[in-house]
C-alpha cells in the first residue's frame, strides 16, 4: 500500500493507493489542489481573498472567478438547507472552510481519476472520498467515537454510489470566538453521499440544524447518516443500519496494516 501524507488547510491529508508509489508529478498535482485553495480561502491568512472579502476590502463581485464559484456554490447550499449550512461562522464572518476542503478533495479525486487511477482513497482531516477498491475489497472507513476519540464507533464500507463520507462534530479546530448556545442534539454527524461536497455540507448542516435538518436532508438527498446524540445514542438511516448490523465480526484491533 502506497501512502502520501502531507499538511495543508491546517489539517493532514492522507492519500492511499493499493500498489506502487504515486508518480511525483501526480503527488504534486494532488498537493496543489489543496495548497492553491488554501491560499485563496484561508481565514487564517490576512491576505487571502476570503479575508479581504470578509473584511470588506474586496467585493465578492470583483473577486476571482474561482472565489465566486465557491461562494455561490456555498450560497446555493445555504438556500437548499434553509440556512442550516451557512457561509458564515456563528459570529457572522464569511467562512467557507468546510466547502473549500470538500472541493479540494473533489478536485484531487478528479485528478486521480483523470490519470487513469482506479483504486485510491483520500482523507482530508477526517473527510473521506474513495475510488475503486482496496485490493478487490470495499474501502472501509472507521467512524470515530466522539466519547472516546481513540476508539472507532463503527466501520462503514464505501460502496459504488456512496463514495464519500464526511463527519462533522465538535471540532478540534479552535476558534477563539465560539458559541455556547444554539447547541444541537448531536455530538457527531457522519454523512455518506455520492459526492464529497454533499456529504460535507449536509454533515455540517445536520450538526447545526438538529433533527429537523436530519429528516429534511435524508428525504431530499440520496444520503445515509450516522448521528451520535449528546446523550451517546446512535441514529442511522435504514440502508446503513443493514450494513452496520449484518457484517460478520473479525478481530480487528487498531492500528491495522493492509
Amino acid at each position: 500500500m502506497a501512502r502520501l501524507v502531507f499538511t495543508s488547510m491546517g489539517t493532514v491529508i492522507s492519500v492511499l493507493r493499493p500498489g506502487p508509489e504515486l508518480p511525483a508529478s501526480l503527488e504534486r498535482a494532488v498537493r496543489e489542489e489543496f495548497t492553491s485553495r488554501d491560499a485563496r480561502f484561508s481565514s487564517y491568512r490576512a491576505d487571502s481573498e476570503l479575508s479581504r472579502v470578509a473584511r470588506g476590502d474586496l467585493s465578492s463581485l470583483t473577486a476571482g472567478p474561482e472565489f465566486r464559484a465557491t461562494l455561490h456554490r456555498a450560497l446555493g447550499w445555504e438556500e437548499a438547507t434553509a440556512g442550516a449550512f451557512s457561509v458564515r461562522s456563528p459570529d457572522g464572518i464569511l467562512d467557507l472552510a468546510g466547502i473549500v476542503k470538500a472541493e479540494a478533495i473533489e478536485g484531487a479525486g478528479n485528478i486521480l481519476k483523470q490519470t487513469g487511477l482506479h483504486d485510491w482513497l483520500l482523507n482530508a482531516g477526517g473527510d473521506v472520498l474513495v475510488g475503486g477498491h482496496n485490493y478487490g475489497a470495499p474501502w472501509k472507513v472507521g467512524i470515530v467515537d466522539p466519547e472516546d476519540r481513540s476508539k472507532v464507533l463503527a466501520g462503514i464500507e464505501l460502496l459504488p454510489g456512496q463514495r464519500a463520507l464526511a463527519t462533522s462534530g465538535v471540532s478540534e479546530r479552535g476558534s477563539h470566538i465560539w458559541s455556547a448556545s444554539g447547541r444541537t442534539p448531536f455530538s457527531q454527524v457522519s454523512v455518506l453521499a455520492p459526492d464529497i461536497v454533499t456529504a460535507d455540507v449536509l454533515a455540517t448542516a445536520i450538526m447545526a440544524g438538529g433533527h429537523r435538518t436530519l429528516e429534511a436532508a435524508c428525504s431530499r438527498w440520496d444520503i445515509d447518516a450516522l448521528c451520535v446524540t449528546v446523550t451517546g445514542e446512535l441514529l442511522t438511516t435504514p440502508r446503513l443500519r443493514l450494513q452496520l448490523q449484518v457484517k460478520p465480526t473479525h478481530d480487528g484491533a487498531l492500528p491495522t496494516s493492509a
Binding site: T7, G126, D127, V144, P146, A154, E172, L244, L254
Partner: peptide
C-alpha cells in the same frame, strides 16, 4: 450501540471524525 460495536470491529482503512488540526 452494542449492535454497531459488535458489527464494526473489522479492520478499517481510514478513519472519519470531526476535523482534526495538524
Amino acid at each position: 450501540r452494542q449492535e454497531v460495536l459488535t458489527a464494526q470491529s473489522a479492520s478499517v482503512d481510514t478513519v472519519s471524525g470531526a476535523t482534526y488540526t495538524s
